[in-house]
């Protein structure tokens, strides 16, 4: 009963959130100067007035904005996100072709950040005033302060240009032929630099968070008791302390999913990663309203799903939540 109520409340919130995202962004993007007809004319090296009028009519841009919004929402409710003005293809098809790479990138970056960040945080908490702890703190500050696009470009210069281990951009090499494993390996090779770039910011955050959390927990009574009982240091760190210290990391990771997706826009642009980010970037420049709104719709959906997953993980990690304690 409790679960059903929570779920229905969450669904209602989700629906309202998506509606707000669509309406606000619809109005925002229409406020920007220029429209798709200008972009298409620019792309074509010019156009006549008649042609501009025809394009506007073709895409329904000749109607008042509020009417356009009404038409868009009534179609969206029925699952029709419209046709891309720029690419002249169904928005759903464009997004479906791009959502996989974004999920892959974001998941890889997040997993990488959580694993490495937590590991570094635990290491740093072991000797809070030691060299390693100081190094991790400095690394965290640098990682957090450096703009994503700068980190990306630096990594490209270092690991794709000076020491050519990884490819410069893209998600796969079209010319690679052979077994499925060869293709998977190729994608993984392409994934390293973008995931690292996106992950570095969050490694820094999770490392600091874990360190602080670990230090607090290591000073608590039950840890002292465990030590007094002669429990081994590795068990104290790995089982008693870490399990509790990781809770804030899980919470923050869930909350940050939205910002990771927005970070992915930059990383995808830097690395020409064929995900939603590059599509969003191109679509905003092209004033491709249906595609921009479609991407925002799916991004909102992804954030909502991520939050639900976080709740589930939280219940799993913290038994007090399961029992309502």
């Amino acid at each position: 009963m409790d679960l059903a109520l929570t779920l229905s409340r969450r669904l209602l919130h989700a629906a309202l959130l998506i509606l707000a995202v669509l309406v606000l962004n619809f109005l925002l993007i229409h406020l920007a100067p220029g429209d798709p007809a200008d972009v298409i004319a620019g792309e074509m090296g010019g156009a006549t007035e008649e042609m501009l009028a025809e394009i506007r009519q073709l895409y329904g841009l000749d109607k008042p904005v509020i009417v356009q919004l009404g038409i868009y929402l009534s179609r969206a409710v029925q699952g029709d996100l419209g046709q891309s003005f720029f690419y002249n293809a169904p928005v759903v098809d464009l997004i479906m072709g791009r959502i996989g790479p974004t999920i892959l990138l974001v998941t890889a970056a997040l997993t990488f950040a959580i694993v490495i960040g937590t590991f570094l945080g635990v290491l740093a908490s072991h000797k809070p005033k030691g060299f390693l702890s100081g190094f991790i703190t400095v690394f965290s500050v640098i990682g957090y302060s450096a703009p994503i696009f700068w980190t990306g470009i630096m990594l490209v210069i270092l690991l794709a240009w000076k020491i050519p281990i990884f490819p410069i951009s893209g998600m796969y090499d079209i010319t690679v032929e052979g077994s499925v494993f060869a293709k998977i390996f190729d994608v993984l090779r392409h994934l390293v630099l973008p995931a690292l770039t996106l992950g570095i910011v969050y490694i820094a955050q999770y490392a600091r968070l874990t360190r602080a959390s670990m230090l607090e927990i290591l000073g608590s009574d039950y840890i002292r008791t465990a030590r007094a009982k002669g429990v081994s240091s590795s068990k104290i760190y790995g089982y008693h302390a870490l399990r509790n210290a990781i809770l804030p990391v899980v919470t923050i990771a869930g909350l940050q999913f939205g910002s990771i997706i927005s970070g992915a826009v930059l990383v995808e642009t830097v690395f020409s990663w064929p995900g939603l980010g590059t599509l969003a970037f191109d679509s905003i420049l092209a004033r491709d309203y249906p595609t921009v709104l479609g991407i925002l719709f799916f991004s909102a959906l992804l954030v909502i799903i991520a939050n639900v997953i976080t709740d589930i993980i939280y219940r799993f990690v913290d038994p007090r939540i399961r029992t309502g304690g």
């Binding site: 920007a32 100067p33 220029g34 429209d35 200008d38 972009v39 004319a41 620019g42 905003i284 420049l285």
Partner: peptide, 9 residues
């Protein structure tokens, strides 16, 4: 900020 803005002007 972008091409459409310039084109509009």
């Amino acid at each position: 900020p972008d091409f459409p803005t310039w084109a509009k002007r």
